[in-house]
Amino acid sequence: MRISRLYIAGSAIVSAIIVLLIFVTLIVNSSAAVAANGFHLFTYEWNPAKDQFGVLPMIFGSGAVTIIALCLAVPIGLMAAIFTSEILNPMWRAPVKSVLEILAGIPSIIYGLIGIAFFSVWVGDLFDLQSGRTILTAGLLLAIMILPTIITLCDDALHNVPQKYRETAAGLALYKYEIVKDVLLPIAKADINGAVLLALGRALGETMAVMLVIGSIDRVPEPFYNALSAGQTITSKLGREVAESAFGSVHFSALIFMSLLLVAITVSLTSLTQFYFKQEQRLVE
């Protein structure tokens, strides 16, 4: 009895320690960069040889690819979810969702391979560019990667709206378009917002695929909306440079600082998402 309680409390403590350990490790190891650079971290020059560690180009890149990905994936994903939930014969819904789940399971490194072998070449040809390794390519690839998540979660959100609303609306002779726009979407709005936030977190944290196609240059494009030039995200910077910097150096610490920023954003997004999704709780009687 005592051992059993020890085991269960022990595992819970181990789980908690893991989370805390990760945060503490990141905070401790990024402190050197903050101490050495202070607000100079938020500038545009990254050059370890000159002790310049400006992280803004990477923050810009992460923001840019994520916005592109969401702008492409949210409309398409939401429309497709409306189709699977409201128009498609319900018989097909389960198989479609299974296929989506499988699509979501394709490892990101394979997306990266497809990106480098096809997408970067296509983007280069389509826009007549010297190099298809661009912010747009990365955004496009990310859009495809988060699409299954958006469709599945939006489909759930719409499907969870009780049938009686549809029946009442149909009774008022509303068209499908009006039912979806005026009845279902307002009710499912919270869950759909949650889905978008979750996808946003995924896109921000994605590393391998982005790293292979973005061109890895630490610079904000000129003009800044020129998505057809190369860029750098926080994750691609980390993927390429963490192993190269000496543990304990300011350079290393500046990279960890970026990682901490990223974690802070994605973790708050995921936690925020939980407030959107309803969650049944059963506390011990």
């Binding site: 990760i22 993927g239 990279l255 990223l262």
Partner: peptide
């Protein structure tokens, strides 16, 4: 609190796990 911790762990990007492993 336990829910928040678990969802936080779920929200940490994969590259950060690698970095944590490298440091720790």
């Amino acid at each position: 609190l336990s829910s928040i911790l678990i969802y936080s762990l779920n929200g940490i990007p994969s590259v950060t796990f690698g970095i944590f492993g490298l440091i720790f």
